[in-house]
């Protein structure tokens, strides 16, 4: 029969571990999933991968010289916009995550000051 105190000790350390896990690993996973969802939402409109696959195809099936030029231009703009946007999202996600990580230490600093 397990002892009550053994169980309590185990639960105490488990709670501490869970707190640290939820804060650091859980926080990372949450921010990662959120960032991923945001990127996917934008990608359904900007379609970076699909645009790169069809990069040299003209838009609207317009195989005229002007059509090809315009298509190339628009695609470059689209890819550029997508890459900038995704980079911003990634940077923000990383910044947010580090803020999250440092938040307790910031609180400790304020508490100690």
């Amino acid at each position: 029969m397990p002892s009550a105190f053994g169980y309590l000790a185990q639960r105490f350390f488990h709670s501490l571990w869970l707190f640290l896990y939820d804060w650091f690993a859980g926080g990372f996973l949450t921010i990662w999933h959120l960032a991923r969802q945001i990127v996917f939402w934008f990608d359904r409109r900007l379609a970076l991968g699909i645009t790169l696959r069809h990069f040299f195809e003209p838009m609207f099936g317009d195989f005229a010289f002007l059509g090809r030029i315009l298509g190339f231009g628009f695609r470059v703009a689209r890819v550029g916009l997508a890459m900038i946007l995704y980079s911003v999202i990634a940077i923000l996600a990383v910044a947010f995550y580090f803020s999250w990580l440092l938040f307790p230490f910031a609180l400790f600093y304020l508490a100690l000051r």
Binding site: R44, A47, I50, T51, H54, E57, F60, G61
Partner: peptide, 8 residues
């Protein structure tokens, strides 16, 4: 229009 912008 598809996302690849190749449709008509």
């Amino acid at each position: 229009m598809n996302r690849a912008w190749t449709a008509r």
